[in-house]
Each structure stands twice: as C-alpha cells, then as structure tokens.
Amino acid sequence: MEDKLKKMVQLHQQEIDTLQAPEFLWERIAADLDKQQNKAATPIRRLWTKPMLRAAAVALLMIVATLLIRQQWENTASQQAFWSRYPELQEAEARFRPMIIAKVRRLEQIGDKALTDALLQDLALLEQDYETLAKDLRDNADNRQIVKAMVENYRSRLQLLERILQEIEKKQNHEKADVQL
C-alpha cells in the first residue's frame, strides 16, 4: 500500500529545506582539522610533507590500491569479464583522465574560486551521467551506443574544461597586453 504521506514529503521536501549552514561553521571545522593534523604529526609523519616523498608515497599507494582493486575484480570473474569486454572504456579513461586532472589543476591556478567551484559542479554532473550510463550498461542492456556515450562523456568533460580555459586565457592575455600598452 503506498503511503501518501511519505510520497507527499518526498515530493515537497525541497520546499522546506531552506536553512543555510552559517558562514562561520567552516572556519570552526578547518580549525578542528588543523588541530587534529598537528596532533597526528610525528617526526616520521613530517617526512610526508616533503613533496618528493609525498608524491612517491601517493604513487605507491595508488599502485597498491590498483593491485588490490584488480585482485578484487579477479575474485568476481564475471565482473572482470564484463569490463574486459569494453577495452575502449579503459582506453578512454587512460587517455582522458590525466588530461582532465591537469586541466582542473590549471583552472584552479588561473580561475577564481567561485568559477572553479562552478566548473567542478559541471564536471560532477557529467561524471554522474557517466555513472548512470555505466549502471545501465551493467544492469540492463550491454550495448555499443552506451559505450560510445561513455567514451563521449570523457571527451565532453575535457572539452568543457578546454573551452573555459581557452576563454579565460584569451581574456587574461588581452588584459596583460593592455597593461603593457
């Protein structure tokens, strides 16, 4: 039996979710996090802050993680078999991901905060689309159109970043040129 009350609440919840977290809260959270980090920092820990070591450690962690994930996948042979059916997805991920991450970093350097946040939201939406596609690929019908859309999704993310970066850089160059004049 459907619960009319629950249905109504689900439908209208957004109307009453109007409170906003107060501005100062983040500062309190950040302060707490700082405190915790300082507490946790032992001499050994401090090594981590050296960039090279940190990078190496992250790389190592990633390798370990990848291996672990691989292993997990191998455990569920069907899943592995499933993904291995789509080498183009693996290729797309390998090709686009590093470029996307590099562009995001670049954006953070040259764009302002609000802008970067907005762009990250857009990227998150695209990523969400990707998840939807992946879910449909797994659950329903395994088809080429979806796989194509997934590859396209990676490309869209990159294109979005490229377009925005290009525009910002173009305008900023103009500004520099103007200043020099």
Partner: peptide, 10 residues
C-alpha cells in the same frame, strides 16, 4: 552466445 540489446534489435 551473448546478445547485446540496442536500438537496432529492440
């Protein structure tokens, strides 16, 4: 045989 469902066959 595995069949892929797509707009062509469904």
């Amino acid at each position: 045989s595995s069949i892929n469902i797509d707009q062509n066959n469904l």
